[in-house]
Design a protein around this nucleic acid. Structure first.
Lengths: 204, 204
DNA sequence: TTGCCGACTGACCGTTCGGTCAGCTTGGAG
DNA sequence: CTCCAAGCTGACCGAACGGTCAGTCGGCAA
């Protein structure tokens, strides 16, 4: 842990590591303090409780990664000409999530342990997402008979689950050089299935 | 908790409820014992440790749901004439998982907390799954240029994540009668996307 | 120099954790 | 009836938990 940064930042970083690895229930304040190189008491000097530290770590995780801005700019802006911008491009959400596996894993803990922390996407994202999808349907880049509610959930599910369960599938990708190239291959393959479906000619 | 069943079964049932809700780290033997209506000591009479109880509960969960037999019969048998049998039919894996949300949620805990418990799909499933996909490609029911490794992972991801995060999306499905009909609508929509893709005519 | 404040610590609190153990009850075999 | 094993319990253990608190320290303003 970098000793030059402020102790509060070091605590947040350590909390990020421990919480993301073990979840809320599995993490202990002792371990976070040890990883940050400070006493346990200092955690309570900067944060009211374990839940408060968790919340702060979630906020920092979202903020530092810029996922919310990225998400809303992709969803709400009008400059998305095709699905490629949405999913396939290096600047698309899928690759962005792929470049931030920690955030995605944290999102999975939020799903399972529920409760505190704002979660993502938050409730107010719904209308923006649905409006965007409806617009893309109007422009003909998304099939009209697709369920507009199901689509974003499927999209998120694939990404969120991958970064929790990928360790189970590492040996399925025998021959790949490293984990990063496995990630890339999975994302490319998943986007391909999402865009074009698994059947030939889009029919069963 | 049904008092007529054996105490060991009551413990396993209670462990299932608590573990699935709180995960391994978040669950306590005290609470499981209380839910089962027995003393904590009895848990240790029937099971060596907390890990052993977790493992037994995972086994019972897999066995009772019949998910492994179902999975291997779907994957390995030759009587699957089309993708409909694999995914869309009421007897397909997707609907089967939808009818067993507890198993799916447990699988998500296994993914995140890693470690003990055999997990699913187990490593030896890989070859069977890949052979099956290759055969379906040969018969022309799956596109030849699809990544055969990515497909089953995407498939599992959608299902596993849905039953962990569905509480976040309940209000996205405004107008649906109950949670069961939401599940049905999601599964139908997700299978539709999986089979046919989100683009019209299967192209971007 | 004094006073104050925020950063920081170690000792400590009550509680709960996973786990142990001696001993009680019960029912079937001999 | 005796015996024994299995089912079952409450009291208990040391460790770890989240959290508190009195107090030390360095820096800064007056």
């Amino acid at each position: 842990m970098d000793p030059s940064s402020s102790s509060k930042d070091r605590i947040l970083d350590a909390a990020g590591q421990v919480f993301r690895e073990k979840g809320f229930a599995g993490a202990s304040m002792q371990l976070i303090a040890r990883k940050a190189g400070v006493s346990k008491s200092l955690l309570y000097h900067h944060f009211e409780s374990k839940q408060e530290l968790w919340r702060a770590m979630v906020d920092q995780c979202f903020q530092r990664s810029g996922i919310l801005e990225r998400f809303y700019s992709i969803v709400a802006s009008g400059d998305m000409r095709s699905l490629a911008d949405f999913a396939e491009g290096e600047e698309g959400l899928f690759h962005f999530l792929g470049r931030n596996p920690g955030v995605v894993r944290m999102m999975n803990w939020l799903d399972l342990e529920g409760g505190f922390g704002k979660g993502f996407p938050d409730p107010c994202a719904r209308d923006a997402v649905l409006a965007r999808i409806r617009e893309m349907v109007d422009r003909g880049v998304i099939r009209a008979d697709i369920d507009p509610v199901v689509l974003p959930i499927v999209y998120m599910s694939i990404c969120v689950n991958w970064f929790s369960a990928r360790w189970k599938y590492l040996d399925w990708f025998a021959g790949e050089r490293d984990e990063e190239s496995i990630d890339r291959r999975f994302i490319r393959g998943a986007i391909d299935i999402l865009l074009r479906g698994m059947t030939p000619d889009g029919k069963d």
